[in-house]
Nucleic acid binder design. Structure first.
Lengths: 212, 212
DNA sequence: ACCTGAACACCGTTCAAGT
DNA sequence: ACCTGAACACCGTTCAAGT
C-alpha cells in the first residue's frame, strides 16, 4: 500500500500565500501554515529547509504573477501595461512589497521583467545608462505608490479620501497650505488617491519621452 | 530617599532605535530593549501600553528627523532638499520604511512635511489637484528608490554594482536586453545605482515644471 | 510609582522516534 | 520517505507581588 505524500512545495507555498492574503504576513508561521494543510509544523521541513526559504518562495510567487507586455507593443503602452500589472499584483498581495526589502536575490521572474523593460526603453531610443535610470525611476515610483496606497487608513472607496481628510482636525494656523489644499479639493468635488497613479506615470513617461 | 525613575519614554525609544540601527527591526523585542537599558521587559509597560505603541513612536522618531526647507527657498530647490533629506534619513534607518506600511496614522512630523511641500508646489503655480498628485508622485519615487537602494545585495561602494552585475550568470539568449545593457554600461566605465536618485528626481521635477 | 518573577500562549528549529 | 511529539530557546503580555 503506497501512501501518496500529502504535501508538496507548491501546496505549501499556496497555503502560505492564502494565509498571508487573508490574515497578513504576521500570521504566516510554520505552525499556522501546517495547520492550514492539516499537518504538523515539522512536516514542512521535509520540503523547505527553513522559514526563510518559504518567504523566498512566497516572494517569487508574487513577482511571477506580474504580466509582461508583448515585445511588439509600442514602448509607452508597454511600460504603462507593466507598471499597472505590477501595481495590481502588489495591491492584491500587499505583503509582497515588504518582502522586496528583505529578500534581495533576484529570481528568474524579476530578471525576465528587467529584460523586457530595458528592451522597450532601448528600442524607444534610450542610451544604456539612461535606460537603466529611467527604469529605476519607474520602478521606484510603482513600489512607492503601492506602499502609500496599501497603507492608507481608509478603504479605497469613492470619496472616502475626502471624508478622511475632513475628519482630520487640521489646525489651519499650523498647517495652512495643507488645510487650504484639502478645502480646495473638497470644493472641486473630491479627490481619489488612486487616480494619482496614472498621473504620476504620465509625469515620468512624459519626461522620458522628452529626452529621447 | 526618593528614587529617580531609571526609565522614560524617550530613553526607551532611543534604545529601541539604536537596537534597530545596529541589529535590525527583528531584534527589537520588549525583552531586548529592556536588556539594552538594564531592566526587565515588563518595566517598559509602565511607559508604553504595548509593543505596537513602541513601534508607532519609532516611526515618528524617524520622520521627525527629516529636514524641512525654508519657506523662502525656490520651489525646485526646496523639493530637491526635502527629497534628499528624506532619502538620507531612511537610508540611515532602513527599518523606517517598513514602518510606513504598517503604521498609517500620520503624526505631526508628517503633517508638517505635507504642509511644507504643498506650500512650495502651490506657490510655484500648481492647481490644488495637481499639487497633490505631484506630491504623491515625488513621495512615491523617494520611498520606492530607498526601498530598492536599501535592499540591494551589495554595499554601496564605487563600482560594486558592476562587480555584482558581472557576477550574475546572465543567460544572453534568455535575457538579451539585460545582458546587452550590462555590457554597455561596463564598457562605458561603470554605473552607480545611487546616482539614479538625482536623475529620477530631475525626470519628475522637469515634468512638473513643464506643466506649471 | 516603579520594577520584578512567574505564568500563559505563542514563535522557529533540533532531534529521536514512529509508520 | 514522510510525518509526529517532545524539547529548547525564544516571543508579547497578564497578573500578583515586591519596594
Amino acid at each position: 500500500m503506497e501512501e501518496k505524500p500529502r504535501l508538496s512545495r507548491e501546496k505549501i507555498i499556496a497555503a502560505a500565500a492564502g494565509l498571508a492574503d487573508r490574515s497578513g504576513l504576521a500570521r504566516v508561521s510554520m505552525r499556522n501554515v501546517g495547520a492550514e494543510l492539516g499537518v504538523e509544523a515539522m512536516s514542512l521541513y521535509h520540503y523547505l529547509s527553513n522559514k526563510e526559504e518559504l518567504l523566498d518562495e512566497l516572494s517569487d510567487f508574487v513577482f511571477s504573477q506580474i504580466e509582461i507586455p508583448d515585445e511588439s507593443t509600442q514602448w509607452r503602452s508597454a511600460l504603462e501595461f507593466r507598471a499597472s500589472s505590477t501595481r495590481r499584483v502588489l495591491v492584491a498581495h500587499p505583503w509582497g512589497l515588504g518582502m522586496i526589502e528583505s529578500r534581495p536575490i533576484p529570481g528568474p521572474a524579476l530578471l525576465k521583467h528587467h529584460n523586457s523593460v530595458l528592451g522597450h526603453l532601448v528600442r524607444a531610443g534610450c542610451e544604456p545608462l539612461f535606460a537603466s535610470q529611467a527604469f529605476a525611476t519607474l520602478d521606484a515610483f510603482v513600489y512607492g505608490f503601492v506602499l502609500s496606497e496599501t497603507s492608507m487608513p481608509f478603504e479605497m472607496k469613492e470619496g472616502a479620501e475626502m471624508d478622511y481628510a475632513a475628519s482630520l482636525t487640521l489646525d489651519e494656523s499650523e498647517y495652512p497650505f495643507l488645510a487650504e489644499n484639502v478645502a480646495a479639493l473638497r470644493e472641486a468635488g473630491g479627490f481619489a488617491f488612486s487616480d494619482g497613479f496614472q498621473v504620476g506615470l504620465g509625469i515620468i513617461l512624459d519626461s522620458i519621452e522628452a529626452r529621447l
